[in-house]
Design a protein around this nucleic acid. Structure first.
Length: 831
RNA sequence: GCGAAAGUGGCGGAAUUGGCAGACGCGCUAGAUUUAGGAUCUAGUGGGCAAUCCCCGUGUGGGUUCGAGUCCCACCUUUCGCACCA
């Protein structure tokens, strides 16, 4: 027997045992409840980093804990295997194909995950770049195409000049590429979109089903979807004999509209100015604004620039002619790309009107001001509540009343309609890169774009391709791929050559795990709904909008296709914090990277897992500490020594603990044991606070050491020691799966500790005969007394008054009041 | 600018419902063991003080309460999200 834990030998032994006994196979006992725990699958970059170690350790503790609690647990793993790094690596190294690179990386990372002791059911492994997976990604696309949820349109899109592909709005952060940080350009291109806007309302409403999500994330999604209730109003354009439609949330201020603004990209700009003396000036201005956007994108508050078009619109509420401007502060992408400007009640309009000397007309009077608002005298716009002025028959109505009344009147008059507007745009999924799932569409001169029929799926990604990025899909140059026949009429036709955004691949993988080998369907409803929705999902906050919004959208689409009864994919979501070193995120450029490989080699998997779970609660950032790792290692060895050094004692122990024969110290230890079981059970099962769960196991370990140190071996209660040893091993098992297997075997058990039953605590054992009552004087602790746990209030107060350190306070002042909190404290209020 | 979260020893963190602030770990101090070091075990460790008494102490200032790290108000700092969204 060694006095230190020989982790290499033990890990090797149990890895083999687990593999041979198929220990982590997904349970299917019909008498047990099902539990689905999932960590976001990784991009197979080739190596695990500490962030991976953290998120997978968290998921593994939950999976192992739930199994011991008697659940069938689905705990799968897979690979988000399409994407740019594979191509970039291939380009950089020259002689390796993205597919080969990806599959090599997967094999390598899988070994590392196994070495960490992660309990995945590898029979359900899913790889998005595998043909049997992306066949169904394509299938979903064709279904959505046939249901008008996938469509093609030309629009201004975001272009990353470094990745040489378009990006979805969600993938642009601060006007830069979410992946590589390069500033994005705008390009006018025809691209494929998924109609996520059709689901905007449901994505928003169903947040109410997500009590198990952080409020912060729901708020971020809410802001992203950006619902605003307002109205569309038509202003007349006499010159064109057309209407100019604007969106406004403040129809109550219609009488205060003193000018209109068009986005420079608005189609009417040309129509209104063509052939006039303003034409040239306007054209120059539009060009300037388009250029300026690029230059000024980093500045917080860009200056409002505008130009009068020479044209006028007619305000439908009072038939007044008001000038039409174009300006940089109105965006084509929101609303109708045109606004009515109410400078008195909108700060942006106010600034603009002041700059270009346009009339400011107040129409809302604040309740608390006696003097009537006058546009000329205002210093800033007034956006608050009040009652209407200068608004004809609507005067004196409140803002709210006026909104409803005007909406009603003007709807009847025919120039207004109530409408909800969203900031959310449709999801652009075309990518001009090689390593992705080809969009399964064929273009036929006669039939137009046609979806590839199910029996012809997958549209296979050709292997031999020159994939250096050129701004166009590399597939364009592969004639054998491009040239095909129309599935409908059989005429020669061309394939779509763009591939899909990898976020499409990851929008449904969590359903495929439930039925990973299905060759006829992406999955059956029966198999998905056996596990769905995911009970606990764990991943990085950076996906708060991207992946999580897309996954929710897909789930609703799948629901509408009647492939699941559920409308939300993830019941509970834990956003785990980052792993930092020296206060900063680990990165090669900062040179502060700690490689999990080194930690595993030096301390073993259990220590690495234990430290990373102990150092910080899971949702907070974690500061890496080499000393902290040593502490975790020390603790595991302490447990190792406790069990191995007391094996003779434990082996001779028979029967169960008889509480009645325990002496005082033994009783205390027995109670601590049950308190620890309770604490760990609640911390792991309900609060997901693994750091405090581990500290509770440490405390119990300390207590048993102190019990053993304080007495000679002949009056040690062997049965109690055995009970404590077994419980420490059981409680520790989800955190440190290897050492606990070995110790469980030492303790004389034949099966795996991970198949043992999670210990239960005894409420009876937690009760104390005697409790400590704190005695306060005016809220400050002055003394403590011990009383019987069932002592009545009068008895406790009596004893409190008699406490030694209280006497001087009682003598020096008058007792006014006594507060008694049962089983906790007595507070004497003395003046 | 708007919104959210956070601020506790030398460090990571705990205090779950308004009731003993600092659990647990790191670090540090002393002792035991050892030829020595390491490892291990024991005791101590918020600040002030000779003290087990006492005073102070959870970002700052106020408030509510018998009692506040916890609740309320104002402010400061940090982090995150949004930022011409009509």
């Amino acid at each position: 027997m060694q006095d230190y834990y020989p982790f290499q030998k033990v890990e090797e032994k149990w890895l083999k045992n687990w593999e041979e006994s198929d220990l982590h196979k997904t349970g299917d006992d019909p008498d047990k409840e099902n539990y689905y725990v999932l960590e976001m699958f990784p991009y197979p970059s080739g190596n695990l980093h500490m962030g991976h170690v953290r998120v997978y350790s968290i998921g593994d503790v939950i999976a192992r804990y739930k199994r011991m609690q008697g659940y069938n647990v689905l705990h799968p793993m897979g690979w988000d295997a399409f994407g740019l790094p594979a191509e970039n690596a291939a380009i950089k190294h020259g002689n390796i194909h993205p597919k080969e690179w990806t599959w090599d990386n997967i094999a390598h990372m899988k070994e590392q995950m196994k070495a960490m002791g992660l309990s995945y059911d590898w029979d359900r492994e899913v790889t998005t770049a595998a043909e049997d997976y992306y066949k169904w990604t394509q299938w979903f696309f064709t279904k959505m195409f046939n249901d008008d949820l996938a469509y093609r349109k030309e629009s201004t899109v975001n272009w990353c000049p470094s990745c040489e592909t378009v990006l979805a709005n969600e993938q642009v952060v601060n006007e830069s590429c979410e992946r590589c940080g390069t500033e994005v350009d705008k390009r006018d291109l025809e691209q494929w979109f998924l109609k996520i806007t059709d689901y905007a309302e449901r994505l928003l409403d169903d947040h109410q089903l997500l009590d198990g999500w952080p409020e912060k994330v729901k708020l971020m999604q809410k802001n992203w979807i950006g619902r605003s209730e307002g109205t569309r109003v038509n202003f007349k354009l006499p010159k064109l004999d057309k209407d100019l439609e604007v969106f406004t949330t403040r129809p109550d201020t219609l009488f205060g509209a003193t000018y209109m603004v068009l986005a420079p990209e608005h189609p009417y700009v040309r129509e209104l100015t063509e052939g006039t003396d303003k034409e040239e000036e306007v054209e120059t201005f539009v060009k300037k604004v388009k250029k300026q956007k690029e230059q000024e994108r980093t500045s917080a508050e860009s200056e409002k620039l505008g130009l009068f078009t020479g044209a006028y619109a007619v305000n439908p509420v009072n038939n007044k002619e008001i000038p039409i401007y174009i300006a940089n502060y109105v965006l084509m992408g929101y609303g109708t790309g045109a606004i009515m400007a109410v400078p008195a009640h909108d700060q942006r309009d106010f600034d603009f009107a002041r700059k270009y000397d346009i009339e400011i007309k107040a129409v809302i009077q604040p309740e608390d001001k006696e003097e009537e608002l006058v546009g000329k005298k205002m210093d800033e716009a007034y956006a608050g509540d009040g009652y209407l002025i200068n608004s004809g028959k609507y005067n004196d109505l409140s803002v709210e009343e006026a909104f409803d009344k005007m909406a009603e009147d003007f709807s009847e008059a025919g120039f207004l309609k109530v409408e909800t507007n969203y900031r959310l745009r449709d999801w652009l999924i075309s990518r001009q890169r090689y390593w992705g799932a080809p969009i399964p569409i064929v273009y036929c001169d006669d039939c137009g774009p046609v979806a590839v029929p199910e029996e012809d799926l997958p549209v296979k990604l050709p292997h031999d391709v020159e994939f250096s990025p050129t701004g166009e899909s590399p597939l364009k140059k592969v004639e054998s791929f491009v040239n095909t026949t129309c599935p409908e009429c059989g005429a020669p036709a061309r394939r779509e050559t763009d591939t899909m955004d990898t976020f499409v691949d990851s929008s449904w993988y969590f359903m495929r795990y439930a039925d990973p080998k299905n060759e006829k369907q992406p999955f059956t409803k029966k198999n998905v709904d056996q596990w769905f929705p995911v009970d606990q999902y764990i991943g990085g906050i950076e996906h708060a909008i991207l992946h999580l919004l897309y996954a929710r959208f897909f789930t609703k689409v799948v629901h509408d296709m009647d492939l699941t009864d559920h409308v939300e994919p993830f019941t509970n979501w834990l956003a785990q914090g980052m792993v930092l070193k020296d206060g900063a995120k680990m990165s090669k450029s900062k040179g502060n990277v700690v490689d999990p490989k080194d930690i595993l080699a030096e301390y073993g998997a259990d220590t690495a897992r234990l430290f990373i779970l102990f150092a910080s609660p899971p949702e907070k950032d974690l500061e890496w500490s080499d000393k902290g790792v040593e502490g975790a290692d020390r603790f595991l060895n302490r447990v190792w020594r406790f069990v191995t050094e007391n094996l003779d004692l434990i082996k001779n122990a028979e029967g169960k603990v008889d509480v009645d024969v325990l002496d005082k110290e033994a009783k205390k230890l027995y109670r601590s044991m049950h308190a620890s079981i309770k604490k760990v059970t609640e911390d792991v099962g309900e609060r997901l606070n693994f750091n405090t769960a581990i500290s509770a196991i440490m405390e119990l370990t300390n207590e048993v050491y102190s019990y053993l140190n304080d007495r000679s071996s002949e009056n040690t209660d062997a049965v109690l020691i055995k009970d404590v040893a077994e419980n420490i091993v059981l409680l520790l098992a989800p955190f440190a799966p290897f050492i606990t297997e070995e110790l469980w075997e030492y303790l004389g058990h034949a099966g795996n500790v991970h198949q043992a039953v999670w210990p239960e605590y005894d409420e009876e054992a937690l009760k104390k005969d005697e409790i400590t009552i704190v005695i306060q004087v005016n809220g400050k602790v002055r003394d403590k007394i011990n009383v019987a746990a069932d002592a009545p209030e009068t008895k406790v107060k009596e004893k409190a008054m008699a406490a030694e350190k209280i006497q001087s306070y009682l003598e020096d002042g008058n007792l006014i009041k006594t507060i008694y909190i049962p089983k906790k404290l007595v507070n004497l209020v003395i003046q």
